[in-house]
């Protein structure tokens, strides 16, 4: 659903079921406005997907949420704490996997996790158990003493996830966690993310739309530094595919006009487009309002009028098409 921008920045913490609240966030780099007043919230335990073309502001938003840099204006609340008032404490609650999975390539897997555990103030007596657990979750036990630089991309991704999990942060921020992986690795990482999300709040960005409907509970589509749509994938599909398309093909081009008039006269039809005509076959595309599925009516009608109906099918807009439709509109 299209988002209404909130105008006021509240000073009170968000409700307790809200894990992340972002209010009127803007980020400027010199004259470039990378984020333009965006607001959204993420509930506890939710998996939120960020979608958007390159330069939409996904990484900038994630960097603000992880404390890489502060916003130019606006506020971020995480777990009822004001981020920029108490950054160091709140950073303990966030695990981050940046897009290119930056890791110290000359360190061993275990050595890196110990370093992160020290930085994240994991109590000394728990460090060993903590590392063991994360190695196990991420399937790294066998490569624990390997040098990171010698690992495959898939394993490095897992190391990246493992370091984000050290200290059990309540929030995981994953920037394109499956990019550059082969199909088998992608499936494994997705599975892992779903498991991790069971007791955590996860924000991830992706280019792959099917990933969003597979993993995420909710989607935010960013474009040009603005939130252009947000909702569950179902909501997005329902809301944005306002128009149902029906494709009709008849086998007698002499009756083209008659068929055209019949279709046009149907209730709920917005417009009828005449498509190609070849070997006596004529195609039409109808746009109807979404609640009315006119296919049974059309087929009955054509049978009554003895028009040879060759094909009739519904063209529901896929998430892909919705996405393209949204991001190709210039943000206002």
């Amino acid at each position: 659903m299209p988002v209404n921008e909130a105008v006021n920045v509240s000073v009170t913490p968000p409700a307790s079921d809200v894990m992340i609240q972002v209010e009127n966030l803007s980020k400027n780099f010199g004259r470039v406005q990378a984020l333009k007043n965006i607001s959204f919230e993420v509930l506890r335990g939710e998996i939120l997907g960020f979608l958007g073309p390159n330069g939409a502001g996904k990484t900038t938003t994630m960097r603000i949420l992880t404390g890489y840099f502060p916003p130019t204006t606006g506020k971020v609340w995480i777990d009822e704490g004001d981020f920029h008032r108490d950054a160091k404490r709140i950073k303990h609650k966030i695990g981050y996997l940046p897009e290119h999975v930056p890791l110290y390539r000359d360190m061993q897997v275990e050595e890196l996790l110990r370093f992160v555990a020290d930085l994240r103030s994991v109590p000394r007596k728990n460090i060993k158990a903590e590392i063991e657990e994360k190695l196990k979750i991420c399937g790294l036990t066998e490569v624990r003493s390997r040098i990171i630089g010698n690992l495959s991309k898939g394993f490095r991704q897992r190391v990246g996830l493992a370091q984000a999990l050290i200290g059990d942060p309540k929030v995981l921020v994953l920037d394109e966690p499956t990019s550059g992986l082969d199909p088998r690795q992608i499936i494994e990482i997705r599975k892992l993310i779903r498991e991790l999300a069971r007791n955590r709040t996860v924000i991830l960005s992706t280019h792959i739309l099917s990933e969003v409907s597979m993993i995420c509970d909710r989607v935010i589509i960013l474009n040009g530094g603005k939130v252009v749509a947000s909702g569950t994938t179902q909501e997005l599909e329902d809301e944005l595919s306002r128009h149902h398309e029906i494709f009709v093909s008849i086998g007698d081009h002499h009756r083209k006009m008659e068929a055209f008039e019949l279709l046009k006269a149907l209730p709920g039809v917005e417009y009828v487009k005449e498509g190609s005509e070849h070997e006596g076959q004529v195609d039409f595309t109808l746009s109807t309002f979404k609640d009315a599925d006119l296919r049974p009516i059309i087929s009955r009608l054509f049978v009554e009028h003895d028009i040879p109906l060759l094909e009739i099918r519904s063209g529901r807009l896929s998430l892909e098409e919705i996405y393209i439709k949204i991001v190709s509109q210039e943000p206002t």
Binding site: R63, T66, G67, Y68, F69, A87, K88, R89, K91, H92, I94, Y96, P98, H100, P102, L103, Y104, R105, V116, L119, R120, S121, Q163
Partner: peptide
């Protein structure tokens, strides 16, 4: 160059 600085900035470090 390794871009690990990005991670360092997001760890609980000033």
């Amino acid at each position: 160059s390794l871009q690990t600085l990005e991670l360092l900035f997001t760890y609980p470090l000033s």
